[in-house]
Simulated assay, not measured.
Amino acid sequence: MSETPERKPRTLDVLAIQDLLPHRYPILLVDRILDYEPGAWIRGVKNITMGELIFQGHFPKNPVFPGVLIVEAMAQTGGCLVLTTVPNRHDKLIYFMAIDNVKFRKPVVPGDQMIMDVKVMTLKGKIAKLRGEAFVDGQKVAEAEFMSMLVDAPQSEAQ
């Protein structure tokens, strides 16, 4: 009886991520995709460094990565998943429709490596409902559900 070989992870580096998403520094919040299953789930990484522009004002003497950016990072990770299966993705953008059931459990600070797990709840046509969880050192730091819509990009935004 032969064993099934272990599946090699599907990874994406930052250049492949930039090919999927229109975001660029300082708002690109996904550094690497560690693995994904098209249409099902994705795992991404965001390295939190003191060099982040946001830490100049949030908060200078007690730097904390803002919760809204944690949610955005999870959403961008989910956007990578959705866009991997869109044939004309360079002509599309993904917009938030709703953000629900958000919980922040622990501050994220410079030096942390945030791992984001995002799963598809529903994917129907142009609408996606996703659930994201963010972890630092194996501890859940945030979670959220979000809905998004795939729209045609204005000609000036198409890559």
Rank of each mutant, 00 (worst) to 15 (best):
R7H: 14
E145C: 09
I94Y: 06
K124D: 11
R89C: 03
F104V: 08
R131G: 06
S148I: 14
T85R: 03
K106W: 09
L81Q: 07
T85C: 06
I127D: 02
D117N: 13
D19G: 10
A128F: 13
K8Y: 00
I27R: 12
A75P: 00
Q56D: 11
L150W: 00
I17T: 01
V30W: 01
R24C: 11
A144T: 15
V141C: 00
T11G: 03
F135Y: 15
K129R: 15
D91A: 11
G67C: 01
R32L: 03
L83N: 01
P110F: 01
P38A: 14
M116S: 08
G132R: 05
E133G: 10
M74F: 03
V68S: 13
L123M: 15
V108F: 11
K126M: 11
V68L: 13
R10G: 05
L53S: 06
E37S: 10
M74D: 00
N88A: 14
I94E: 07
L83T: 01
K103G: 08
I115Y: 12
V118H: 09
I27N: 14
E145W: 05
K140T: 04
A73F: 10
G132L: 06
G44R: 05
K106Q: 12
A40Y: 09
R131H: 12
K103Y: 02
P87H: 04
G44I: 04
W41I: 04
W41H: 07
M121C: 13
V120P: 02
S148G: 15
Q113I: 13
D152R: 07
K119N: 09
V141F: 00
L28V: 04
R105S: 12
T84M: 00
D112T: 05
K92T: 14
K103Q: 14
V120S: 13
R43G: 07
P9G: 07
V86R: 02
V108P: 03
G138I: 04
K140N: 10
G138F: 11
Y36A: 12
D112R: 05
E145G: 02
P87V: 02
E37N: 09
K124F: 04
V109C: 08
D19E: 08
V68E: 06
V71Y: 04
T85L: 04
E37R: 03
T84Q: 03
R131Q: 12
V45A: 09
K61S: 15
I94C: 08
L20R: 06
N101W: 02
Q113Y: 05
A40N: 11
W41A: 10
F135P: 11
F55E: 03
F59H: 01
N47F: 14
L53M: 10
Q113A: 05
H23M: 12
P60H: 05
V118E: 10
G138Q: 09
M114N: 12
M116P: 01
L83C: 06
L123H: 15
T85E: 15
R43L: 14
V102T: 13
V86A: 06
C80Y: 02
M121A: 07
P154K: 08
V120R: 04
V45K: 13
R24P: 12
V120E: 06
G138T: 07
A153Y: 06
